[in-house]
Each structure stands twice: as structure tokens, then as C-alpha cells.
Design a protein around this nucleic acid. Sequence first.
DNA 1: TGACTTTATTTGATCGATCAAATAATATCT
DNA 2: AGATATTATTTGATCGATCAAATAAAGTCA
Lengths: 349, 349
Amino acid sequence: MASMPTVTDVALAAGVSRQTVSNVMNSPGIVRADTRERVEAAIAQLGYRPHASARRLRTRRSSTIGIRLDPMIDGISGSVLDRFLHALTEQADKQGLRVLLFTATSPEDEIIQLQRLNDGADVDGFVLTSTFAGDPRTKWLIENKIAFVTFGRPWGTDDVSDPQHLWVDVDGWAGLYEATQAAQNAGARRIGYIGWPSSADTGDDRRRGWHDAMHERGDVTEADLIALEAVTVDGVAEGTAAMQDLRRRAGPLDAVLCASDSLALGAMIANPERVPVTGYDNTPVAAAIGLSSVDQSVGEVAAAVLDLLTGEFGGQVHGAPESLQPRYQMIRPRLVTRAFAAIPMEMLV
Amino acid sequence: MASMPTVTDVALAAGVSRQTVSNVMNSPGIVRADTRERVEAAIAQLGYRPHASARRLRTRRSSTIGIRLDPMIDGISGSVLDRFLHALTEQADKQGLRVLLFTATSPEDEIIQLQRLNDGADVDGFVLTSTFAGDPRTKWLIENKIAFVTFGRPWGTDDVSDPQHLWVDVDGWAGLYEATQAAQNAGARRIGYIGWPSSADTGDDRRRGWHDAMHERGDVTEADLIALEAVTVDGVAEGTAAMQDLRRRAGPLDAVLCASDSLALGAMIANPERVPVTGYDNTPVAAAIGLSSVDQSVGEVAAAVLDLLTGEFGGQVHGAPESLQPRYQMIRPRLVTRAFAAIPMEMLV
DNA sequence: TGACTTTATTTGATCGATCAAATAATATCT
DNA sequence: AGATATTATTTGATCGATCAAATAAAGTCA
């Protein structure tokens, strides 16, 4: 083909004006049915596609959202972000939005990148991941009135119901509460927990899910509850060590829950009694090994993020604090139950 | 800020014309030094950023490359694509290129997406992954004269040195050849191989690396070489089964190489003698468990892909078949050696 | 110095779409 | 029917940058 046809070409072919063609695409309702059909036929016949940049220049809207690709997938759990990214791209496409990637080496560098993309009108808004207490990025975005939604609640002293900060998060508490109850319903009483040191907010959240469920049920004493918990940083080797520690301190176990699939995988290695182990994130490893795991339902998260973000574009959230729609959404994770299919009998000596 | 400054604002502030400002940004060489400095100062002072869409409209170039995010990371090895994506985004940024994601449900659907993005002038070119024999996507792109580079060589009857098809791939043969030699140098003689059925081209490539190195060395008989090979589809459980099979058929082993980290992880589970196992892809799992693995050096792949792609934009490969620069690049993978740190002694009964 | 080349800078047009306002066509009402 | 309200369509201007061609300034040489 010589070159792509433009609105003018379509208009000529359909015997209407440029603007009518534009209307057919953007507000079909205001065009009379027969005219619309004529234009649509011309569009199809010529194979017309609107020129994205021309449209963006005029509308001052890029229909693109930016998201940072994390610097290094430095553990098994990186795959959650992947799946989220995929879900986000797929669902964004349905709304005519594109997803643009960028990278950054630090939160400060990320702010520079955010500014670049925003100033160049490359994106309409951002999705942030891996939020943390006192996050300078959200602060900066709010100050500059740039649309964004975070996957991750505001931690620390940041206000969870700050109307300027839209967020979506997965309810780690509910995930572990449910996993604990599932184990209890299966007859388990002495349920151990391998978690992270309490510096990690998200770890505390998960731990409380287990703790609350155990406490409510009251099968074990408070002293036992303390013995049933092991704390360690993330990692497979660390999970193994924690499991050994747990078995030594707590005696017989009916089940073990972990704050991550890495820890769960590690725990499995030091698990000759085949005590059921549950991980967190439902990574490919968990599926491969046959571990139960708490799945973050990234699809739902992506949908919620887009909901908030597009609501943001249209509804001018920054300027309209009186709006009553919720500013955040807490997604309930889903427990995926599996048997240890991949672990052969001969290893269980 | 009220709104972003434009070239006109900068020109006014610096006392020059629009075009001179444009020249300072795009061809600084033709602007006199003192004028350039004055303009640069004005740019810095006003915080001017070129409007990406306006530039794209005029230059008919988006400075954006499209890449499809694979539908589902259905195995451990999905992380290779991730790391590649990250490297690509990072290096593209250095050249002023952006990376736009899209998804597709099938090769046919992908072609529709390719067309959409291309016709809408959203991207200048594409990076394709997971190529396969008779790939309709590359055929379509060539027919439509759209710039692209594939991560993966043309398989099957497709011509590897087709001047229209630029590609970068990792030399799986060399990876396994080197891994085999490394094992041999460490004193291993009976080196097993767990690979995929020969329907997978990329699997055959890896297998030959092991086979050639074994054959050249001549430590084992041809009959033994057959016994030292196990074939199975990918998966952790499959790796375990293959390992058991191998130990039964081949007797004592000095080392085992696998076509993937999934298989290697599986093999580890049925490996009471602690025979060194080497995987492929150097995924986070390999790192976590302490498996040796062949790393695809995605950084180098990303750099090579961009080289070819930007060379393409400038050099107009499609119209200039007389160019002599190489049309493809084969990247040598890197063997990462690890001890089984994560497997505690007590499991080795 | 004056004619001529080379280098710097400016001006007007343009990329392809949408906005805002004007005009034309149709429907509604007394 | 005639005046008015409503709906449909068209026209000119504009988004912010770069291209192409014109003009101005500086440099070169006899």
C-alpha cells in the first residue's frame, strides 16, 4: 500500500466531511444511522486506522498507562508481577488503553522517569507496584496532580483512605485466615507458620491472618502458638532452616503455612513426614512441585486498577474530593489446594 | 504549572526561532555554539520537554517498539522472557526508544494486533519471541515490509540467512557443549542427559551440544551414550521420572544435564547420590535451589536485538538487499556453576 | 572591496486528527 | 403554514513539533 488513508480519504469516499468520520468513531450516537453505515463501509473498504499520534496531539490524551518493570526478578515471587502485567495489558487493551514499560534504578530515579513520561505526554497515568512506607513516588505524583493507582496499599503512616491516593491490594490477612481455616477443617490442629521479620508490613498482615484464625479456634495454648511460629528472611535455604527449627521447637505438626512460595519450597525439603505445606503467591514453582498456595488473583487486581484509573481520567478525581465512590479496593485472594504430586515416594524415607 | 512550555515558548525565551530550538535538540551540530548554549539554558530554565505525540505525528516515527507479552507463564522458564523484557526496556531507553506491550491469544490474533499497532503508527517495529517452524507472523511482517527482529532463529524450512528476517538467538548447542565439557573437566565420564522429544527444534539443538561433546571425548561407547539419554516432555514430575529411569538404565552417573530448569529440579528430587545436575535458563528456582544452569545472557540478546532493529530503521534493510552487515546474531550462553547449597545434608539418606 | 561560497537562522506549510462554532436539515408545536 | 426547537453535518482553527525552502550572516578568495 502506498500509505495509510486518513480521515479525509474516508470522508471523500463516503461523501461526507472529516468531522462526520471522526464522529462515527468517537460519538456514533450523534450520527444518523444511514450516514454512519456509509462511513463505516468506507472505513472497512479503505482499511482506515486512526493515526494514534495525531489523535493524541489533538486530544491531549495518550490512552497509555506507564508501569515500571521491576529491576530484577530476584526471587521466585517475581512471577506475580508478570502475571499482573499480563492481565493488565490484556484488560487495558479492551478499553483501548496501551501499556508502556519503563525501568528505574531507584525510587528517585523512578520519579525522574515518571516526570519524563508525563511531561512528554507519553502516558495519561501510572500504575505503581511495590509500595512501601513513606513512598516518595506517590507523594510526588499527588503533588503534581498526575493520575495513578498503586498495586499495594499505603503503608506506615500514609493514610489508607487518603482520597488522593487510589490503590488496590490483596488482602493477605484474609488469604492466611482462609488457608488456616482450610487446614483446620481438614483436621489439622497444630498449624505452624513460617513468616518474615516484622519489618515487612505485608508480612505482618499475613501473619495476623494465621494468628487470628488460630486464636479464634483456640486449639492450642498461647505458649504453643509462639512455638509454632518461625521467623526468617525470604529464601529457599531459609525456609528449610526455619522448618527444621520449627520441628525441633514445636514438636509434631499437622500443617505448615508460609509467607511465600520460596519459604514453602524450602520447608518441603525438610519435611519427611509430608506435613501439608501451603505457600503464598501461587508461583509456577508451587504448581510444579504440587504445593498448595494462596493466589493473589492478579486478574481481579488488574481490573480494579483499571477501574480506578479510568474513573480517574474521566471523573477528575484530583479536583473533585466530594465524589463518593471508593478510592481503593481490597481483593480477596484465592486458596489453591494441591497434593504433593511431584514428590515421589522414594524420597520420603 | 499551568501547562507545559512548547518550542515556541523556548524560542521566545532564547530569542531565536522555533526551528533553531528544534535543531538544538535534533541536530546540535548545525547550530552555532553560543546560540546552542542560550537555547539549552532556556530549555533547562523553562523545564521544556518535547511533546512526544507532536513529534511523532510530524516525523512519522513513534520511537516505540512493540512486544507481545506471552499469554501465560506456564512453567518455570517463563522468567527468561521477563528478564529479556527488562533488559530490552532498559537498553531501549538509552536509545530513546520505548517499549509497548500487547497480548494475543494465537498467532493469527497476534497478526491482527501487529497490524493494529503498525497501522495506528503506534510502533516503528516489533520484537517477536517464541518463533516456530512455519511461523505466519514473520511471513506477514515481511510481506508488509514492517521492521522486526525475532528472539529465536527461523526454524524448520525457513531460511536462517534470509536477508529479510533479522534474528538473534542463543546458541543452545554451545551452551550444552560447554556444560558437558565443564563436567568432563571436573572428572565426570558418564554424563547423562534429560531432554525433550525431538519435535522441539530448540531441544534438538541443546541435545546435540551434549552429544557432540560426549562423542568427541569418546569416554563412553555408543551404546552407553544411548542409555545415558532420557527423553520426556517438560515438567518437574517428568524430570523426576526421567531421572529414575536414567539411573535404572544407565547405572552409575557422574553428572546429569537437563534441557530445562524444570527438568533439573525434578531430577534433583530423585538424586540421593548428589550427582551434579545442570539445568537450562538459570531461572530463580535454579538460583534458589543451588543448581548449575546455562544462562541465556538476555542482556546481550536485548542489545543485539536493538542493534539490528535500529540498524534496520536507519539502514532500510527491506529496500537495500546489497548491505553486507550480518542479518542475525548468535549469542553464546554462559554457564553458571553452583553447589547444591539449599539441599540440607539430612535429606541425602 | 565585491562576488561567491559556506554556514546559520528564519519563515511558511504540514503531519492527521479533534474542537468549537457555524450552517443545514429535520422535527415539533401552536 | 410559519416560527421555533432539535438534530445532523460542515467549516475553519488548532494541537506541537519538524520539513523544505527562503533568507540572513559569516567566511573565502581574487
